[in-house]
Every structure is written in C-alpha cells, then in structure tokens.
Design a protein around this nucleic acid. Structure first.
Lengths: 254, 254
DNA sequence: CACCAATTCCGAGAATTTCGAATTTTATCA
DNA sequence: TGATAAAATTCGAAATTCTCGGAATTGGTG
C-alpha cells in the first residue's frame, strides 16, 4: 500500500507545532484541539515528554521544552559559516549601532542563522525576526546577495518555486528586473534592499561562500531610512559591510 | 500489552540526535549506524524531511535543519522572563565586559536560556556553554540562586534526583553544607560559584521569580579569577548583579 | 552503453498504534 | 471528613501502520 510519511511522526510534529502556538496546554486541551481520543493524546504527550520534546510545568500544563533551543544551537554551531561570522556580525552591529545578521540558503529559502542588534536598535520593528526564520531569497538584502551567486537558471527555479509576491509596495515582482539587479549585484559586490521587505527598513547585503560546507550565505546590515540616509545607504556603509564580508570570507579559508 | 512510549517517535528522535552528532550523513550511513534496513531508514529520513526536521544539502548529505533553531527561539520568546531579561543581560555583559547569562528551572535542572559575552571574553573556555544546555542546579551561580528559592524539602528532592557529583575539586558535595549555603544565599540575596563548576571561572548569581509563569530563574555574571579578583568577586560586582536582577524583577511585574 | 550506487516501490507479515471503556488519582465542596 | 465530580492514567482487543527483503527504477560515470 501507499506507505507515505510515517503517520505517528507527522502527527507528533503537528502536536509540537501547535503547542508552540498555544504556549502551554493540558492534555485535554490538546486532545480537543486535535479532535483525538484522550487516551491517544496521552500516548503522544507521554512519548513527547520522555524524548524531552515537551515538558510539564508546575501548573500541570505542557510546554515545548528547551530541547529545541539546545539542538538548534548545536546545529548552528556545526556550520563553519556561523562560528566564523558570529563575532564579525557582532562587531558590525557594535560599530554601526544597527542590526546585523547572517543568512544561509536552505532548500532555496533564506534562513536567518544569527542576528545582533546595535545600540541604536531600540525594539525590532519587525518582531518576526529571530534566528531560524525563513524568508524568500529575493526579499532581503542578504537573500539577494545569496541569490546573485547563483546562475540565472537556478535563480529562475528558485523564483518558480516560491514566486515573487510583493511584501511592500517597493518589492521587485518581475523576473526580468530581478535578473538585471542580480547582475548589478555581481558587478558591484553588494545588494541593497530599500524597504522592499519591510516598510521603514533599508539593508545592505554581501555574499559569503563556504567551499567546505557547499554553502552560500550572506550578511546584511539593516536600519531605518532616517539613520541609513542616502549618504550612508548608498555611500558610507556598503564598503563597511563588504569589509566584514571579506574578513569572514578570509577566515573561512583559514 | 505494555504500550509505553511510541516506538517510531523514539526512533525518529534517536536518528535526529545522532545526526546532530554526525553533522551530516547519507541515508546509507544512517542505516549502517543504526543497523536498520535501508528501506526503513528511507521511510524515516523521508518523513523527517517532509516535516522539516532534517534537510538534504547540495552534496546529497542530510543535516538537521534550522527548524530546531526556529522552534527553540519561538519557545524562548514565549517566556516573559526571557523577553524581559534579554536586554538587561546584554547591558550587564556590556557594562562589565564579562559573560552574563539567564537560567531557568526545567524538570529540576537548570537550562541556560540566554547568554551574552562582554568584550573581555575572548573565547569561551567552556565551549559547552550555549543556549539550551542543561546543568544541575547546585553547580552554577544562577543554579544556586534558583535552588535557594526552594524550601529545604524541595532542594533535597532535587539533589536526590540528580546527585551531588563534583565537577571540580571545589564543588560542594554534601547536602548539609549545601543547605547552609542556601540559607546564606537567601540572607544576602546572591549566590557565588568560586570555580565549583568550571576551573578558572567565578560566578555571581541572583534569583528572579516570575509569578505569572510559575517560573523561577536566575541571572549570573561569570569571569576568570584574574579579572574577578577577590575585591570584585566579593565586593564590587554582587551589588551590580543584584541591581540588574531588581530591574528584571521589576519589569516582570510591569 | 554498461556499470554501480542511490533511491523508490511493493506486499505480506509482524508489531505497533489506536480507541473505548474501566480504573485510579486528584480536586471540589458540602 | 466524606461524597462527588473531574482529570489523569491504564488496559486489552481490533485495526492500522510500520517493517523489511527484494525487486524495480533512476541517476551518475567511465
């Protein structure tokens, strides 16, 4: 018969993801939510507890445990790109006072591996920005820097896969202009995001390639237009970001 | 029959954990490693890939995906204690130049939720310190600050559960002295770890209680004895750490 | 084109998962 | 305290899923 994905595994994962959303829940609440027999939910909950994916708090409610935090950080440290870039991202954020981040490509999407806020960043307008979040490569400065390292055919396959839906009114939504921009990025060595992803956010990205990991990544500096005015956005900062990119690239090759 | 933990789930988790250790592996390598039929391993690998726990890189090797990083960070942000303490931890690290961290209690163990390195911290001697790692509560400064918030009976149950195995030659390994130390911590308001957990590391911890989350946590400042000399370790820094603890505690209560 | 390896397909047998119901534990209130 | 209700856990048979060897297919390489 059609075997397909293992059902109990998929089910368990749905429970975990739901529990992240709910923050905390009792077995009954979960059973109701999934319209499953209580006893079955107990089996799942108990198993998830023994393998440490979830944990029961003193109030008797279950929460997703710190296991994910631990594994996530282990995974991240497995990337040379992370260990090398981490201190530089931090220095870039300190030096500029703005937001600096590191992105890698995973399954044709961008994944934010690391981020640092400089002291000018009061509260991230974009509260949806945290390590592990994914975004389409054409939407961010680091993403575009990554995309530009691919050849046109690969770029096409990426945009075919995920589309070019606009995020703001400035988002580039046509393949032609995007490919032209990619060529420009290759020539000058850095990518710009002028409020194309988030209103009120400008970013400058440069690519980083790790031969050993078969990985392409990118770093970016983000800040609001009032601080990243035209002078800094187009003139002062791009070389700074590039310099940090070069440092990381150099350290990657030992 | 004895139902026990769901086997396929436990198995899947073992695969994930092994893959974290191996960093990357092919299906065959995994099958060999677990001594499982190739076709069965394919079912697991494919399922784990569809639920996004692992991902196949361009080299055809599987790795644990960024899913864990994402969920880990979501979970962390669900804690009021984290969102409130995060910026203060950071300021504490900046102000002192040393290592600052936030710990919570989970299943009678300490879990490091957040950490910041000040500019004096070149490379963490202790490379085993990263968000999500667990440690026994009696071994660290934040851990002891947490432990001291419990009553003696609870403390006893914690030490019964995990023992008092020494980590360095200075570790306190007897319940009696430990309970006395707890009383001292309650009185003066902060906990000290004088190379009891890691050789060459001194720490100062203070407790933080979140009524809303039913949670007890603690923050700590860590540094080497040459910088945290007796004057700073016993005199200058404890009030500083306490001050940050008070700020966090205050912000927790709005 | 032939080879080898990687991946997918397949179906029967085995084993686990599932679920309702029964049992135990915990909480609530008179 | 005892009675009652609610929640949590256990149980075992029924059914579905998982397992696994082997066959079939795909993909890459010389």
């Amino acid at each position: 018969m059609s075997s397909g994905p293992l059902k109990s595994l998929s089910r368990a994962n749905r429970i975990v993801e739901r529990l992240v959303e709910m923050q905390s829940a009792t077995v009954r609440e979960l059973a109701d939510d999934f319209d499953m027999p209580l006893s079955t939910m107990y089996e799942y909950v108990n198993t998830l507890e023994t393998i440490n994916y979830i944990t029961k708090g003193p109030d008797g409610h279950y929460r997703v445990s710190s296991f994910f935090l631990k594994v996530g950080n282990q995974v991240r440290r497995n990337y040379d790109m992370y260990t090398v870039a981490e201190p530089e991202i931090r220095r870039l954020a300190d030096e500029t006072g703005e937001f600096a981040g590191l992105m890698i490509k995973e399954n044709n999407l961008g994944v934010l591996l690391s981020m640092k806020k400089g002291d000018k960043v009061k509260r991230l307008q974009v509260n949806r920005t945290y390590p592990g979040v994914k975004s389409r490569l054409n939407t961010t400065a680091y993403g575009k820097a990554i995309l530009a390292q691919l050849d046109d055919e690969e770029i096409r396959s990426v945009t075919d896969q995920y589309g070019l839906h606009p995020r703001t009114e400035k988002t580039v939504t046509e393949l032609g202009p995007l490919l032209e921009e990619m060529e420009l990025i290759r020539q000058r060595g850095y990518a710009l995001d002028d409020e194309e992803c988030f209103e009120g956010m400008r970013g400058i990205g440069v690519p980083i390639v790790s031969e050993t990991d078969n990985l392409i990544g990118g770093i970016a500096l983000y800040g609001p237009p009032n601080r990243l005015d035209d002078d800094s956005f187009f003139g002062e900062y791009p070389p700074v970001v590039q310099e940090y990119g070069d440092i990381i690239q150099g350290n990657l090759e030992y």
